[in-house]
Design a protein around this nucleic acid. Structure first.
Lengths: 243, 243
DNA sequence: ATCGACTTAATCATCCGATTAATAGAATCA
DNA sequence: TGATTCTATTAATCGGATGATTAAGTCGAT
């Protein structure tokens, strides 16, 4: 099996071949340079790449530390750059997020604990509270927490990592998709129904509500996206034009 | 909107702020260093990171060229390292791939052209040919091509990028999931049915077959995965144990 | 005039050395 | 004992030197 997943990175090869576990600290760059026969400059290039991927963390005097594996940093780094050059990509990533939530809904909900279900209801009431104040606030934090709680028990680093990335990106682009009051109450009405259905262990009922509520979001037009690209109207999101 | 997607990378900031399009070439590192007031060494670290993410390509004398955006390189780089340290992750990524294929099946198939549908049938017959030879060959290339053709028209860089990444990873780990003859014929029986249903525009029939065929793969045990971790038997894949 | 081989120069790739900044841990002192 | 200072280690950044690669220009032969 051994398999050399040829990574053209002496640093990463060193990490995998010497079985470094999360939390373990690598030798200093000086020692690594001597041991691997690679200059420090080159090692630093690979170190920067590894750090962008979230694989290691480096601090002076503490050395280079291996992180526990996560898909999020790589996804976020790539997505953030993509969004900076083409904001339209946010819609595509939203589609991906919707697809992942739909596909993993069932096993995720089935694995929720009673405590998780109480958390869901708590987020709903917190959101209603924010929405019902005289000076209403957008319950964004609760929105993120609600969805991520649903998938809290999902044992899939990639699915959860991509969901996490979605919310990071949402906060970064600040499209304010959930801006107007009527829309927010509708969404949280769904959330409330979902939380209650989950509490009653009616998984399919919750699933149906979840699908409806995704559809609600899906049909919603992106409001004040940058008008940089004029070809917005004619695009038909899901499908690539035929060659 | 302007939004400084603070990237703590002078190089990437420079690219996005100056509107470099795919194919455009950046100034030389010397000039960039002078213009940005950043040393070449530091720029090279960021260049390596950008290259790992597949955002740029650098070649001597050609300079640094912006690539068209793709999610694949980042996903692949992260996944490959993850697999090198924990092969179990392949199953999780397979689950993700299954979920994406299920979620995007309908719009993808609906957008296929007649030519695409003929390609699907062609891959099926190529695969049967390989399987029916006296010295049978595993039609892996056809398997990949068949699935990627189904999603050829899907206009979602992230979904298609992750599917592409899956096949790259599959070839890298070489688990030989599709090894024995009986399994292969069963899979390609499904593929044949899918291709024909798609040709007859029976999208839901094709979808049902596709779901069945994914289930077939899902229930299949990973055969000769490294026995490094003995806790394989007791794991129940999809769900994280309760806190 | 066209084509191919050769030269040139621009640029990335790699390496080295030195300096700076940050910090963990030891030493010191109230 | 507890807070502070000191010191050594290490990453972070810089500047420069050299080699490798290759696009583009040059030259010559047919």
């Amino acid at each position: 099996m051994i398999k050399q997943l040829h990574s053209d990175s002496e640093l990463l090869d060193y990490i995998v071949n010497n079985g470094f576990v999360p939390g373990a600290r690598l030798p200093s760059l000086n020692d690594l340079s001597a041991e691997l026969g690679v200059s420090i400059g080159k090692l630093r290039e690979q170190l920067e790449a590894a750090r962008v991927l979230g694989l290691v963390a480096a601090r002076p005097r503490r050395g280079i530390e291996c992180n526990s594996y996560s898909f999020t940093p790589a996804a976020r780094a790539s997505l953030m750059f993509g969004l900076a050059t083409n904001e339209r990509l946010f819609r595509e990533f939203s589609e991906l997020r919707n697809g992942i939530e739909s596909a993993f809904w069932r096993p995720a909900v089935l694995a929720l604990t009673d405590e998780d279900k109480q958390d869901l209801k708590r987020y709903v009431s917190l959101a209603w509270h924010k929405l019902q104040q005289s000076r209403i606030q957008i319950p964004h934090q609760e929105h993120r927490a609600f969805h991520m709680t649903v998938f809290r028990r999902l044992d899939n680093l990639f699915a959860t990592g991509l969901l996490e990335t979605y919310w990071d990106a949402y906060e970064a682009v600040e499209l304010n998709l959930y801006a107007d009051y009527g829309y927010l109450t509708e969404v949280w009405g769904y959330h409330e129904g979902i939380a209650e259905a989950i509490e009653r262990n009616e998984v399919d009922e919750a699933r149906a509500l979840h699908e409806e509520h995704l559809l609600l979001l899906r049909t919603r037009d992106v409001p004040r996206s940058s008008a940089r690209q004029a070809s917005f109207a004619e695009e038909n999101s899901m499908v690539r034009s035929q060659a």
